[in-house]
Design a protein around this nucleic acid. Structure first.
Length: 560
DNA sequence: GGGTCCGACTCAGAAAATTCTAC
DNA sequence: GGTAGAATTTTCTGAGTCGGACC
């Protein structure tokens, strides 16, 4: 896709697609599946029943125990009820969804137990749908669409302490849909009896379909897959910007260190914030509308209550203790020794403030980004995350890769380098539900292997003793083969232990996000080439598709 | 200049689906 | 070679970033 460059802002010349796939219509429950109110069977109207099934399907989920979720759900559910239902059903706690829930569980079970043929049939139907709606033509290429299926109705599941959790996400109809395609393309037809909200031909944007969602009033889009030209080029650009930052980062660092001394409060705050963004890879931190979303922050929106200052802590001077909820309500907790000037500035910023006051009261992301723009064209706060992530990977790979290691050990080193980045970016996950169990399984495998090794060693020893006495060819051979066996088992044991280490270290860390969004793939490709690691060991099929440009481009001497 | 709002895009972890592995 | 359960991949959609219009 280096073929042609478009003038500023033009994203394509030709765009043709089939429009979205709508969620399947609601299928009413069979007569024998009952809903109970206050212990009595109650037949619900179709609309009320549909919304009730959304709740029933989530009955085992922690969400349905949360006060806000229940309140929001009940309020929206009542809106769907007939006036009769509304007057009867006044208390959610008196609603009994268990029968409905059991029915859905049985359905799931039945789906699992389906015969091969039935499963095959479903698979083929999905493939047909994908083939028809999953691709579009953008300019001269057939491209995969990322999310061609419209989100089905359901209950809103916000992350963390979201004030809107449990609200009803309504069904999207063709009348909600804006289609974007080129004038000279075959315009997708709305489902029979329906009309699109609008058909437009805007080649300054990349989306094919959009609609407005009813919970936050925000716009949702259907766009192309990461493997597409338009996404790939943008991704490449992102890393090129980060590489440009590499060239001037020293200058920028000197600059903000100078600014710590500025007479102007705004400049000092800007400089300290930038230091955090650079050193700790914090997000920019836009302001958010209070009460509309979970209370989370980034750098510029940090509040006094989110940091603690320790002149001395555990033998270190000037320690800042961060404790706040970031994106997706993931907790950021870190104790960081900082330079004295930063520490003194923070003390100054916190003077005469309440815990809920902004730490950087003279700063926001727009001021910060404007300043960054002056330092380097295209520089914004998030570029620091990309830059620091990628440079860390490159450094760690250099440091951790041992040329004499075998392939599994080298891959462990790669994972460790990747992990260093994930820790820097605070990419966490809930420990897998089966973590303890799978760890124990692995441990028992290791124990078994150790026993096996001990046995093998004993056998080797006795074979050696035997050989000493007999001094014939045959017993010598036996010693050799026993030696090999010991070696083989040692290797297997090592591999298992490596696996255990890797898994344990990864318990609460998510590697995927950094791999997919922050690490210049050319670093990984070059590393694979340099050490003769098959690229499949690092990137799976999807990832190889997304990073096709890098796999194509990077040689073993690539430097970020 | 700076604040607010909105649109378009990237990035995020959970959950579902699929594949792999050990018995 | 069939199957259960573990591991990995894919899907899903919510949650950020950031720029530009408007005042």
């Amino acid at each position: 896709w280096e073929e042609e460059r478009y003038p500023e802002g033009i994203k394509w010349k030709f765009l043709e697609h089939k429009g979205p796939v709508f969620a399947p219509p609601y299928e009413p429950l069979p007569e024998n599946v009952k809903f109970y109110y206050d212990g009595k069977v109650m037949k619900l109207s179709t609309k009320a029943e549909e919304v009730a099934t959304f709740f029933a399907k989530m009955l085992d989920h922690e969400y349905t125990t949360k006060e806000i979720f229940r309140k929001n759900f009940f309020k929206d559910w009542r809106k769907e009820m007939t006036s009769e239902e509304k007057s009867t059903i006044t208390n959610l706690s008196k609603c009994d969804f268990t029968h409905m829930s059991q029915y859905f569980k049985a359905q799931t079970e039945a789906r699992k137990q389906m015969s091969k043929e039935e499963k095959q049939k479903i698979k083929e139907e999905n493939e047909r749908l994908l083939k028809e709606y999953g691709y579009c033509v953008m300019d001269n290429h057939k491209e995969r669409i990322a999310n061609f299926k419209i989100e089905p109705p359901g209950l809103f599941r916000g992350r963390g302490n979201h004030p809107k959790m449990g609200m009803l996400k309504r069904r999207i109809m063709p009348e909600d849909i804006i289609i974007n395609c080129s004038k000279d393309s075959k315009i997708p037809a709305p489902p029979p009896g329906h009309k699109w909200k609008e058909v437009r031909h805007d080649n300054k944007v990349t989306w094919l379909v959009s609609w407005t969602e009813n919970i936050q009033g925000s716009i949702k889009y259907i766009m192309l897959n990461p493997s597409s030209r338009i996404k790939g080029e943008k991704d490449w650009q992102k890393y090129e910007t980060a590489r440009r930052l590499k060239k001037c980062v020293d200058k920028i660092r000197n600059q903000y260190r100078e600014d710590w001394k500025s007479k102007e409060m705004k400049v000092r705050q800007r400089a300290v914030a930038l230091y955090f963004i650079d050193k700790l890879a914090l997000r920019a931190g836009n302001e958010k509308e209070e009460g509309e979303t979970a209370d989370t922050v980034g750098c510029c929106s940090l509040r006094v209550e989110h940091i603690k200052l320790h002149p001395e802590l555990d033998g270190q001077e000037y320690v800042v203790e961060f404790d706040f909820l970031g994106k997706d309500s993931i907790r950021y907790y870190n104790k960081v020794p900082v330079e004295k000037r930063v520490f003194k500035n923070l003390q100054l910023f916190m003077e005469n403030k309440q815990p809920e006051d902004d730490l950087f009261d003279r700063l926001n992301t727009s001021i910060l980004n404007k300043h960054l723009q002056d330092l380097m064209e295209g520089l914004t706060a998030k570029v620091f995350r990309t830059y620091n992530a990628s440079i860390t990977l490159q450094q760690q790979l250099k440091e951790l890769t041992n040329p004499d290691d075998n392939i599994p050990a080298k891959i462990l080193s790669y994972n460790r380098a990747n992990r260093a980045v994930a820790i820097l970016c605070n990419h966490q996950r809930a420990p897998p539900k089966t973590f303890e169990k799978s760890m124990m399984n692995l441990q028992s495998k290791i124990d078994a292997k150790k026993e096996q090794l001990a046995d093998a060693r004993r056998e080797l020893k006795s074979a050696k003793a035997d050989a000493k006495v007999r001094r014939d060819e045959k017993s010598k051979k036996t010693v050799e083969s026993k030696k090999k066996a010991v070696q083989r088992i040692e290797e297997q044991l090592m591999k298992l232990e490596v696996q255990a280490t890797d898994r344990e270290e990864n318990k609460q860390i998510a590697l995927g996000t950094s791999k997919l969004n922050y690490l210049d793939p050319r670093i990984s490709v070059a590393w694979c080439k340099k050490w003769g690691i098959p690229i499949e060991k690092i990137y799976n099929k999807t990832q190889r598709e997304k990073f096709a440009w890098a796999i194509d481009m990077a040689e073993e001497d690539y430097e970020f």
